[in-house]
Write a protein that binds this DNA or RNA. Structure first.
Lengths: 330, 330
DNA sequence: ATGAAAGCGCTAACAA
DNA sequence: TTGTTAGCGCTTTCAT
């Protein structure tokens, strides 16, 4: 293996001191122009590349952001990561990605890894079983800001970034009502998750306020399969003129049931979902959806974390707004 | 910020030398049992965590693997990353994820980043525009093994891991023929990509050899939209009894056209795709597919890279086999 | 069984 | 404008 060139090498070749070379390379004002010139040329020639370890050890800070998610694949987190990476790179940061597999212990181990690597900051979508926030507090106390996103704990002690769930729920109900769809089968996820409760509450509240004459059935499904079955059974008679799905996974299940019944969209049944957009775009006709963009959430999360890394920690919960994307399915 | 404890702190408290503490913590045989005991207890108490930078600087090696992909989101790479992370973590490695945005320059910059961070190894899915392999050679020469995956260059100089494209193409044609579907509309991607050419060649060859009496139309699409339009037009008359899609993106387009024509699957038309499995599972009935698993590719890639990192570089191209997953759509 | 000391490559305060 | 020096936290010879 070709041993990499260091400041020392350059310094020796040029009969300069290491610090002069170091300063020349960072364009320090003290250094003479012709010296800088010579140093830069030789550095280029020797293919000098700074040793990140040494810099990090010296400055005790890295340009790496730790990201801990339950899983990378699936319906949502990969788009979050994509958006985050984009934004982070433009600020010179890289991403260290860790999956927790929705296991609190792995999550804690991953957190430790981030600490050992002196991550500049950490973004966490917690597991559904995360109860003990102490490890996060310790990390934060050690000077590594922690920001939660998407799946956030109740605690008010950390900054949090998430989708505007209430708004999305409201928008869902409002859209359906405006389109005259008032006999609704609304499918939500696991009631134990706060995301579900927030969306549900807003949806239900809006419906009751503005469509008292309508008919709303709320059902909960914890998987695509379950969503499919519930939908299939519910749509057997013609009670409903619209289906609402609170997530991609549930939409996927509902759509199968709709296709199985060979119902036409939007003639026989209207469909609306809360989604990142990929799945609704797969059907014909495409499905209208309330967009909860993973990319946007990623970018926004970086911004918040970035603030935490520089100055005062902006506590509180930041919401990424949702917007209606009309595709004609409702 | 709470300053972290170091070996030095522990050593001072215990009136030991730093090296003794270091050794005690690594369970070095030279150290007395009771000393180890004391050291470990205090380390625990002080919440000692080794400084990865110092270790890395000292040993000039990290436990981080650089991953450079055109994009994280989309139909494929996120599942690759998920599989890779799983495997890497079990070996104590973490992932540094970099998106190239399919831009060769960004790719080169990312490569540089990996070098600066002394990545233990690098996995690259190259951009379609990557022509100059010199940067990769330099990285490799610097002692950081580079392994290409999925989108691999022609060069024989690096180890490569990819899907068994020829096999997948063969399996596609073979399956259709066995099912008696011989009037086929086969949709492929950009002909400039080697993945397309490999799949196409095997598919076409197999068809010609075993279904000379059949009718095969090959079409190329570079986007979901294009695939949709081509399919819609082609299916206007009843020439075909099966559609074959070489990728998820193309399948998505084709399915829209099929739904638009309100054709029944498999009665009116058979459908078969090469896919990772997520998309085919969204339709009703689900679509049969030749599985090209991103997860598996990720795990396999780690294995190859791991070999490269330890001993002799196993050159050549490694193929991840594909298997038929029957869902009854053909 | 334990300690002393060198050094990984870099930065930055201080000297000259 | 440039050089000297100390030190970041750790590992690892080489003593003792």
């Amino acid at each position: 293996m070709k041993s990499r060139s260091t400041l020392k090498h350059i310094a020796e070749h040029l009969h300069l001191s290491i610090s002069t070379v170091s300063r020349a390379l960072k364009d320090h004002p003290d250094i003479a122009a012709h010296t800088k010139q010579k140093v830069r040329e030789l550095a280029e020639l020797l293919e000098y590349e700074p040793n990140a370890f040494a810099i990090q050890l010296r400055t005790n800070a890295s340009k790496v952001i730790g990201v801990i998610v339950p899983e990378i694949s699936g319906y949502f987190y990969h788009s979050f990561i994509a958006g985050l990476e984009d934004e982070a790179r433009s600020w010179g940061y890289s991403l260290m990605i860790l999956q927790s597999g929705n296991d609190p212990e792995v999550e804690a181990a991953n957190l430790r890894l981030c600490r050992m690597n002196r991550a500049a900051g950490i973004l966490v979508a917690s597991t559904s079983g995360t109860k003990d926030l102490a490890p996060f507090e310790r990390t934060d106390a050690a000077g590594i800001p922690v920001v939660f996103f998407d799946k956030v704990p109740e605690s008010r002690q950390f900054p949090k970034v998430s989708m505007a769930d209430a708004e999305a729920g409201f928008l869902g109900a409002d859209t359906l009502i405006r389109k005259g769809r008032k006999r609704i089968l609304a499918l939500f996820g696991d009631h134990a998750l706060s995301i579900t409760r927030k969306r549900l509450k807003a949806f239900q509240g809006t419906f009751q306020r503005h469509a008292a004459d309508g008919h709303l059935t709320i059902r909960h499904a914890r998987s695509q399969q379950e969503a499919r079955q519930i939908t299939f059974e519910a749509l057997a008679d013609q009670t409903y003129n619209a289906v609402f799905a609170m997530s991609d996974e549930i939409l996927a299940g509902a759509m199968k049931a709709i296709m199985q019944h060979r119902l036409r969209i939007p003639e026989d049944i209207g469909v609306l979902a809360i989604s990142t957009g990929l799945i609704p775009g797969l059907y014909e006709p495409e499905i209208s959806y309330i967009e909860t963009s993973g990319e946007t959430l990623g970018k926004r999360s970086f911004e918040i974390l970035h603030k935490c890394m520089s100055k005062a920690t902006p506590l509180g919960e930041f919401l990424v707004p949702s917007t209606l994307v009309e595709k004609g399915s409702v």
